[in-house]
Amino acid sequence: MIEFENVFFKYDPKTDYVLNDITFKIDKAEFVAIVGKNGVGKTTLIKHFNGLLKPNDGIVRIDSLDIVKEPISKMASIIGFSFQNPNHQLFAQNVKKELEFGPKNLKIEESVRDATIQNLVDTFQINHLLERSPFELSGGERRLVSIASVLTMNQQILVLDEPTYGQDYRQKKHLGLFLKKLIEEGITVVVVSHDMDFILDFIPRTIVLSNGKIAADGETVKVLSDQTLLQNADLVSPLLLDLCYSLQQIDDTFTTSINEQEVFENILSMLSKKQKMSR
């Protein structure tokens, strides 16, 4: 679905490459996180997905289309793209109109559009915001509306730049579960995030960027438990993993898991085993 082949990119001919020989592939219905420290080039990377930036060298293919040759308007019907800063896209008189803007541009049928919007409004519980001006919302509310206004467009690929910042635990969970459902429907989702706990909870594959290169690409648990890698990429390990490894220190039979419920049960069985032993 998304293919990068030896992609090089820099903004200014005099500086170093921001993307320095990037190669990876994301299949249909995959859920992928992109992580790395501030300014490493995550936003730069995903802007190549719909041709907002074109590689200096190398090939980017989306749905087997070469992005260099396709107009952005065409890519817009394939890729939904939510930018980091909500202020860069909010403009309508009220939240409802904001949500309708994308689908109208793509000429999506009205009944389909209304159903999608209703579903989103229910998921994120933003009914009370619909009639309000997007400019008078709190920071987190604005971010949420800007994400929702992209989710309304029903595209095959979704790219979200830091969707969780400013969001509370509740909204993060809603978002994570919603995206998981989209994956099941065959939609491909790429998320840039600094939130390691969110990634561990919901996203199975992680790509780590560091110094213009891909420092790691693989199963999230494996990637996020490599301490030296995390150190070099300015990341920290998620709490749940931290906990599992610390528990392994006191009981080496403890099985690591990335699912909170499983960790809960593993702790229970560890405790009961301990109780039996001490009897």
């Binding site: 907002l52 308007s73 817009a76 019907s77 890729i79 896209q89 803007f101 541009n105 992209v150």
Partner: peptide
């Protein structure tokens, strides 16, 4: 710079 980002953002939402 910001103007460019805004143009990008709205283009990505299908604005022509």
């Amino acid at each position: 710079k910001e103007t460019n980002i805004i143009i990008d953002a709205q283009k990505s939402r299908g604005l022509q």
